[in-house]
Computed example of a mutant assay.
Amino acid sequence: MSGPNDNFDPKQVAALDASAIERYVHDALEAIAAATSTAELKRARHDHAGDTSPLALANREIGALPPQARKEAGRRVGEARGTVSRALSERQDEVAAAELEASLVVERVDMTLPVTLRPQGALHPVTTLIDEMIDVFVAMGWEVADGPELEAEWYNFDALNLGPDHPARALQDTLWVDPPSGGKLMRTQTSPVQARALLEYGVPLYVISPGKVFRADEYDATHLPVFHQLEGLVVDRGISMADLRGTLDHLARAMFGDVRTRMRPHYFPFTEPSAEVDLECFVCHGASVGNPDAPCRTCKSEGWIEWGGCGVVNPRVLRACGVDPDVYSGFAFGMGVDRTVMFRTGAPDLRDFVEGDIRFSRSILGGSR
Rank of each mutant, 00 (worst) to 15 (best):
P292W: 06
A294N: 11
D146N: 11
R118P: 10
E107G: 12
L365A: 05
G74S: 13
R362N: 05
P4I: 11
V177C: 01
P179M: 09
Y219E: 08
I364G: 03
E200D: 09
R369Y: 12
P265F: 14
P204C: 02
R316V: 13
V234N: 03
L248H: 04
R60C: 01
P167L: 05
V84R: 06
V341C: 13
P10E: 07
I62N: 11
P10D: 08
G322D: 05
A44D: 00
G366N: 11
P164T: 09
D135M: 07
G82H: 08
R169L: 01
D47H: 03
K11V: 05
F137L: 03
E200K: 12
G330K: 08
F157P: 11
W176Y: 03
K212P: 00
V341D: 10
L57G: 04
A221S: 08
K212C: 00
G78E: 07
D47P: 00
A152F: 14
P265W: 14
L251R: 07
E280K: 03
E280L: 10
A20R: 12
R108L: 08
Q194K: 07
F282K: 07
S19D: 04
R262L: 02
Q229Y: 03
D236N: 12
L171I: 14
D110R: 11
A98N: 08
E231L: 04
A44W: 00
R245N: 06
V25P: 14
L162E: 12
A145K: 00
L279K: 12
I21M: 05
P114G: 13
R76Y: 08
T36K: 13
A15N: 07
R316W: 11
R91V: 07
V177S: 04
E302D: 08
A195Y: 01
K42H: 05
F268Q: 00
I134F: 01
A14P: 04
V226H: 03
L117H: 15
T261G: 02
A294W: 03
R316Q: 14
L16G: 05
V177A: 04
P67Q: 15
E61K: 15
Y328M: 10
P192S: 01
T271I: 10
G290F: 04
P10Y: 13
L65Y: 12
S103R: 12
V259H: 03
D249S: 10
H46I: 10
A34M: 01
G3N: 11
G346C: 05
H228F: 13
F268W: 10
N156A: 09
A31H: 05
N291K: 02
G211R: 13
M1T: 14
I21H: 06
E90K: 15
S89E: 15
L162Q: 15
A14D: 02
E306N: 11
N314Q: 14
D258M: 08
L104Y: 05
S89A: 15
Q194D: 10
Y201L: 06
R215P: 01
G366R: 13
V126D: 06
F360I: 05
G346A: 12
F331E: 01
Q120M: 15
A18S: 11
A80N: 09
V144M: 13
A347C: 13
P66D: 03
V109C: 01
R245V: 06
R245D: 11
V327G: 10
G246A: 15
S103I: 08
P225W: 02
Y24V: 04
F282T: 06
I21P: 04
M342H: 02
I358F: 00
A14W: 00
P10V: 12
